[in-house]
């Protein structure tokens, strides 16, 4: 479990984080969303115990973090720019990391073998770190984070710089950890957060702008709209949709026997049956009706005041 209450951090006059309060329950996978400089990395570095907060406090499992106390235990950390000892071999580095995490002898060997396999870095176990690709460096970083089976994982931009296949594998691995390990990751890839996280914490200019599930965040910024494919009197359908309360109706290209309508609603609600009735009243035929929710990108832009009012 991760809990932060009024967490703040300043560097001289620069306020990096201000009054951040959030909670990630045990076994939950949560994501920090934010632009560059929003305070994501600062928060993660505070939670690892490397940066002491200027104000507030945080708790990770049994470890308390506050000004003057940064001793954190049971955390696996993957920094954004994974620093590694280039001259070491992958296996040797992981054995070193295991020793630093307090593992020794057979237990360390078993753990290193387990995380090498789990992260997919086993194929480069005997190679020098200087000679492996960026993708494998990330895997080695993830392997060291998984060493010792920590109850909490802090992952800073875990898929940054990975090719689509590697990113998908890593996302699958994180998803598989859900329920067993508490994961807090930072990302600016919004769809990544929406796919693997049950909670999203939007950070903007050092403050928490919103916390919720991806679906509730979408609902919060309003209904996205509908995509309708129907045949019939186009003008009658359009007029009917406008009278139903649609903010805008765009008539698109023909699709098979019907025509495509892009319908926008400003208020949240279930307009599906009403739309079907409009088509029926216009003596048209309905081929397809699909609810279109706002993307997390739209949600993010609206909640951070960059995409117009909500």
């Amino acid at each position: 479990m991760i809990e932060a209450i009024g967490l703040g951090k300043t560097f001289g006059r620069n306020v990096a984080l201000q009054d951040a309060t959030f909670r990630v329950a045990k076994g939950e996978v949560a994501a920090f969303l934010g632009m560059n400089g929003a305070g994501k990395t600062t928060t993660l570095r505070i939670l690892t115990g490397f940066l002491p907060p200027t104000s507030g406090r945080a708790r990770i499992g049994e470890s308390e973090i506050g000004p003057g106390n940064g001793a954190v235990c049971g955390v696996g950390y993957l920094p954004e720019r994974m620093p590694l000892y280039a001259e070491m071999r992958v296996g040797g580095y992981l054995r070193y990391a295991a020793a630093m995490k307090g593992l020794a002898g057979g237990e360390a060997r078993r753990e290193v073998g387990r995380v090498l396999e789990r992260s997919g870095a086993d194929v480069v176990a005997d190679r020098r770190i200087a000679g492996i690709s960026h993708g494998y460096r990330r895997r080695v970083g993830l392997a060291q984070a998984l060493l010792g089976d920590p109850p909490v994982l802090l992952l800073d931009e875990p898929t940054a710089g990975l090719d689509p296949e590697q990113a998908a594998e890593l996302r699958a691995l994180i998803s598989a950890l859900a329920g067993k390990v508490t994961v807090l990751l930072s990302t600016h890839i919004l769809e990544e957060a929406s796919r693997i996280c049950s909670k999203v914490i939007i950070l903007h200019e050092g403050r928490v702008a919103a916390i919720d599930t991806p679906n509730r965040l979408r609902d919060r910024v309003g209904q996205g709209g509908y995509t309708l494919v129907a045949a019939g009197d186009v003008e009658a359908i359009r007029a009917g949709l406008l009278s139903l309360g649609a903010a805008a109706v765009r008539v698109g290209d023909e699709e098979g026997e019907g025509r495509c309508f892009d319908i926008e609603f400003t208020a949240s609600g279930e307009e599906g049956p009403g739309i079907a009735r409009v088509v029926a009243d216009a003596k048209g035929r309905l081929f397809e009706l699909k609810k279109r929710r706002p993307s997390l990108e739209e949600v993010f832009l609206r909640l951070t005041g960059r995409g117009g009012s909500s």
């Binding site: 570095r45 490397f50 235990c73 955390v75 950390y77 920094p79 720019r81 620093p83 990391a97 995490k101």
Partner: peptide, 13 residues
Amino acid sequence: RDGLLEMNLSWPV
């Protein structure tokens, strides 16, 4: 310089 210190200090050492 390389961030290795931060990595080392994230371990219980």
